[in-house]
Design a protein around this nucleic acid. Structure first.
Lengths: 126, 126
DNA sequence: CAGGATCCGTAACGATACTG
DNA sequence: CAGTATCGTTACGGATCCTG
């Protein structure tokens, strides 16, 4: 099974360095937005549906409110997640992925898939 | 002071909190190995074929030899990349993805894809 | 409950210079 | 060329307490 038809992702040794650099730009952009220890885990958590602050924190071991708050703000700024405040007593806040945030699902899917096999590899005793 | 009777609070509609946490584990494992500002960019660079140290550095703007050296070592430790020294004068060293490292291609592919659309979104003026 | 404020140690990263 | 060494900065991230 030959995978490449006319894939633009051909950058063997004969292509210029600057061309290779250009290929890297989108990856860098993605990384800028998704970087950090928690963001992708939070996004994965939110792919299951709306969540309250505390619940997200419960689901992700080691995540402190300070970091969660900070990461959620960045996700909001990048329009990947949205915040909804409900006037209950005490106040409750829900977060959910935006439509744009949901476009990350395939990426998260791959990450989860690779992580699963990698995990087995580690446990098997690398 | 804990008032929770049991941790069986709803995650989405059918998953418990602990089950959600489990889903997150593989993602966390993947992140542990791929973390940092440069690793994924280096891997992408290597998906195009063997590269020498200096060439990788040239292709990734802002990457210093110190960081490149450090990241390559970690990739080696995790068996994602391999190092080959050639007894030339001066010495030349080539890096390439291992078979295992190549299993990251689908993930990088998604990252590149998402990053491309995200880049357009940014440039369009979010 | 949802978070902000503060303090503080560590780890990541950057710039520059230097060696075999 | 392929890295190291050194130094300095910034970001990460934990702990604790506090507020609306």
């Amino acid at each position: 099974m030959k995978e490449e038809t006319h894939d633009k992702r051909k950058c063997p040794s004969h292509l210029s360095t600057t061309e290779c650099t250009k290929m890297l730009l989108p990856v860098k952009d993605a990384l800028d937005v998704l970087s950090g220890k928690w963001k992708l885990q939070i996004i994965l958590s939110l792919t299951f549906g709306k969540k309250r602050f505390k619940q997200i924190q419960r689901e992700i071991p080691g995540l402190t409110p300070k970091m969660l708050s900070k990461e959620l703000k960045e996700l909001e700024i990048n329009q990947l997640a949205s915040r909804h405040v409900y006037d209950t007593l005490p106040v409750s806040v829900e977060y959910e992925l935006t439509t744009y945030g949901k476009t990350l699902k395939p990426l998260i899917g791959e990450l989860h898939k690779w992580g699963s096999t990698h995990r087995k590899r580690i446990i098997a005793g690398k």
